[in-house]
Amino acid sequence: MADLAVAPRAWGGRVRLLAWLQEYGVYVSVLALLLFNVVFTPHFLEVANFRTQLIQVAPVVITSLGMALVIGTEGIDLSVGSVMALASAVVVLYLGYGAPVAIVAALIAGAAVGAGGGALVAYVGVQPIVATLALLVGVRGLANVLVPQLTEFRNPTLITLGSRSVLGLPLVVIIAAALTVLVAFLVKRTTFGRQLVAVGGNRAASRLSGLPVRRVLVTVYLISGLLAAVAGVLATSRLQASDPTSLGLLMELSAITAVVVGGTPLTGGRVRVLGTVLGALLIQLLQATLIKHNLPQSWTQMVQAVIILAAVYAARGRRA
């Protein structure tokens, strides 16, 4: 980094541009995409369209928040999609005790899986990608055992959760927004948040400074599991059915994409909460735009790939 000062001007300019892109690229992209739609996409500005977009993106936002925390510690959590499925299975299993009990049970299950993964990482020393890959496979299996086939339900409370609106805003969106504020507070204002980024930035230094490194790691994965379970419950209530085979499939990839596109470096030491939310919105908006212009899903995937590479390139150039 000291090289920055002595780098030739042309290089310095490019590095500065990349740094700026990593910092604000996601905001600019979302804004540009919105403007494009305002001009070229009919009916885009209608409230109904916006509602649909936001409701669809809410579970992605919620899981991405947890993923951002994990990535901030230089880790990764591949188990989030399977945890969503597990939460979906548990909520239906316990629905007989009433919706609140069922929801709490689902959240506990998600937190427990997260804490288990965290313990593997922090105490056993398993690499995060390996520990959570095992959970990705195993927990999906467990969810399928608990609820072997698609199961519909008619619990009014649970259905309301997914479909109700407060002051014109869907409850799902309000929950996602509230969790965003909560996680932002956690990162910016609490001891835990500061310790989290320090552990990601330099684990040896954190240990020598007396930080509870292992506890921080376990907590981070626990929160990721808990948030994935929230997303799972919300998705289930919108579906009005539990579908452990396909619910949350590939969600880990969407979440990682949102985090990376949002400017959080995979090397840890930094968490960008708002960037992550906008990263999720960017992908969602992109999909919606391409669909509205009658381009197939495969196009979205390819454009998504370009955006991911651009985000990682901007992050890389910054450190060079």
Binding site: Q195, A198, A205, L208, S209, L211, G269, R270
Partner: peptide, 19 residues
């Protein structure tokens, strides 16, 4: 390797152990 946390500010580095 064991001292500074490069991604953090001067302030956060100083306050780290006393949090």
């Amino acid at each position: 390797a064991e001292g500074i946390v490069p991604t953090l500010s001067v302030k956060d580095n100083i306050a780290l152990a006393a949090l």
